[in-house]
Amino acid sequence: MNIFRLAGDMTHLMSVIVLLLKIHTIKSCAGISLKTQELYALVFATRYLDIFTDFISLYNTIMKLIFLASSFSIVWYMRQHKIVRRSYDKDQDTFRHLFLILPCLLLALFINEKFTFKEVMWTFSLFLEAVAILPQLVLLQRTRNIDNLTGQYVFLLGAYRALYILNWIYRYFTEPHYVHWITWISGLVQTLLYADFFYYYFNSWKNNVKLQLPA
């Protein structure tokens, strides 16, 4: 464990806490894409298949349980909770996640480190995580008004993977044979997808104006 990875995990944890707080306290999910939340639940479900078979550390297991519980409860809130679901804008959140799931699954079948079910699922979860934010970014462009909590949520979600890139660089130079091209490239693609959001987020913060994405 290094400081970059710990910071990345804490930033990731903060993003789900910000989202859960928003939904739980103001009982609203306005501006949040259910499609992205469902994709994240699928990402964690396919990535943490080994949660009970491969014990790595208490920290690792606890964080996996937190991410699984939070992502599924957010999906539950947005689909089932009688008040929260009313603020879900299903007419705007129309991104068909099958267009993301199928290509990632096919790609994982061809590009993986070992052709086993767990490894292919793990690789699928990496590719899917890289693109899971797309429905959310599309929704932000459409709804245009981005409330602070949603902006902070997306920012933290992007920042965590950027910190992971620093972690991979650190591990590459400090651990012999630590090479995971698949992880690195999908993590880089994921972070680049946030690049334009970061640009507008930083500018809105610098000029102290409300965050607006161009149409």
Binding site: R5, I56, S57, M63, K64, F67, W122, Y164, N167, H180
Partner: peptide, 10 residues
């Protein structure tokens, strides 16, 4: 040998 430590990240 590929230890399970390969996937020691979240």
């Amino acid at each position: 040998a590929r230890s399970h430590r390969d996937h020691d990240e979240l």
